[in-house]
Amino acid sequence: MNTATLGFRAPIRDSIEAIARAGFGAIAPWRRELAGEDVTAVARAIRDAGLGVSGYCRSTDIPAATPDAFRAGLDLNRWAIDEAATLGAACFVMVVGGMPEGSRDLPGAREQVREGIAVLAEHARGAGVRLALEPLHPMYAADRACLNTLEQALDLCTALEPAHDGAPTLGVAVDVYHVWWDPNLFRDIARAGADRRLLAFHVCDWRRETRDMLNDRGMMGDGVIDIPAIRAAVEGAGYDGAVEVEIFSAADWWLRPVEETLAVCAERFATVV
């Protein structure tokens, strides 16, 4: 259970307890929820609840308007990678950022991402943390992520960390909300599996008539995504990690009681995922 699904309404310890009571096996917390917290104590609370940590969300944007801002962003990401290590997270999710405010230089933003990931991969390798590059739907290319297809993400992984005998540090997060439309999706899932780069799998649904670009994801089964087909491809390519629910839903699920949201997620896991 990605804690974003619960709308960030409760302290992290309350979310841990609710998710464990509902029968889920893992949690994916966000950095905003751990601000001011003792991360070691939170990690202990997660373990004591019987949960794993499927991922830690998410990176500070990499592209920046000035060299100083670029370096500052890398410092924040190093700090977060260390927190992911403390949590024992299966991966640190990299939502890389779009173009800096006022910029029209999309290739330049992507080059900054390349430079930044190269630096952060070294730090992550030393910390024992795997970086899951998450391509976002192209509608977010300007402001949230200039990495927009699974192919782009895998090309970047391969360029910065060629295949070798050990487990790679760089991999990908496959979020059905962002990739379901891609005509090359199944080809690239197979490629990611062959390269051992499938690090995370996120599910929700795409409403046929989406009301908000960011905060109107659907509950699994309420939209148009063929989630079972994508899950079968991901698991057929070798992924054996958690299937993580991540739903941003300001006008619907974030307004419902947490217990109801968790119960419906569990029911949909059993019937439509």
Rank of each mutant, 00 (worst) to 15 (best):
A118G: 00
N2K: 15
P183F: 00
G126S: 13
N215H: 15
D188T: 01
N184S: 04
R47M: 06
E161P: 08
F201Y: 06
H202L: 07
F269K: 15
A127V: 11
V95H: 03
A90T: 07
F92Q: 09
R144A: 08
A20N: 09
N77Q: 04
A153Y: 02
Y177D: 00
R144Y: 13
L160K: 06
R197I: 02
E37F: 01
I46Y: 01
A127Y: 08
V176S: 01
S15G: 10
C91E: 07
E259V: 04
A65V: 13
A192I: 04
F201V: 04
E83K: 14
D105L: 12
P100D: 13
G73I: 11
A22C: 11
E101G: 12
A4E: 13
E260W: 07
V42N: 01
A121P: 11
A18W: 10
T66W: 05
V179D: 02
A251C: 12
A153D: 14
D143Q: 12
A232Q: 02
S59G: 08
A124R: 00
A266H: 13
E151M: 05
A250N: 06
G52I: 15
C57W: 09
V245R: 11
R268W: 07
D82H: 10
A84Q: 10
D61W: 13
W181P: 02
A242W: 08
R231N: 01
T3S: 09
A194K: 00
G25V: 14
C157V: 01
R217G: 01
I117W: 05
A43F: 00
L214S: 12
A28L: 11
N215E: 10
A251N: 14
E17A: 12
Q112A: 06
L147W: 11
R58M: 15
R32I: 11
P135S: 01
L154A: 08
F70A: 04
T271W: 14
P67W: 05
G236A: 01
M99W: 15
D165E: 13
F24D: 13
V129E: 09
V172K: 01
I19A: 09
P107M: 00
L147G: 03
A167D: 00
E244I: 04
A22E: 07
W180I: 05
V174S: 03
W206I: 08
E37N: 05
I230P: 06
D222P: 07
A109G: 09
A109Y: 14
G218Q: 10
Q152L: 14
C57V: 12
R217Q: 03
D212H: 10
N148Y: 09
P228C: 10
R130T: 11
L120K: 15
A153P: 09
A121F: 12
V176R: 04
V243W: 10
D82G: 11
D143F: 10
D165R: 07
L154P: 14
V39E: 07
E151P: 03
M1Y: 06
I19R: 10
I81P: 14
I189M: 04
L120C: 03
D175E: 08
V273Y: 13
R196N: 08
N148V: 11
G236P: 03
M139C: 04
G97I: 06
R110V: 05
L6I: 12
D222F: 07
L51E: 02
I247V: 15
G241Y: 10
L156D: 15
E122C: 01
V203S: 01
R58E: 15
A167T: 13
D205W: 05
W79V: 14
L147D: 13
A192C: 02
A263Q: 11
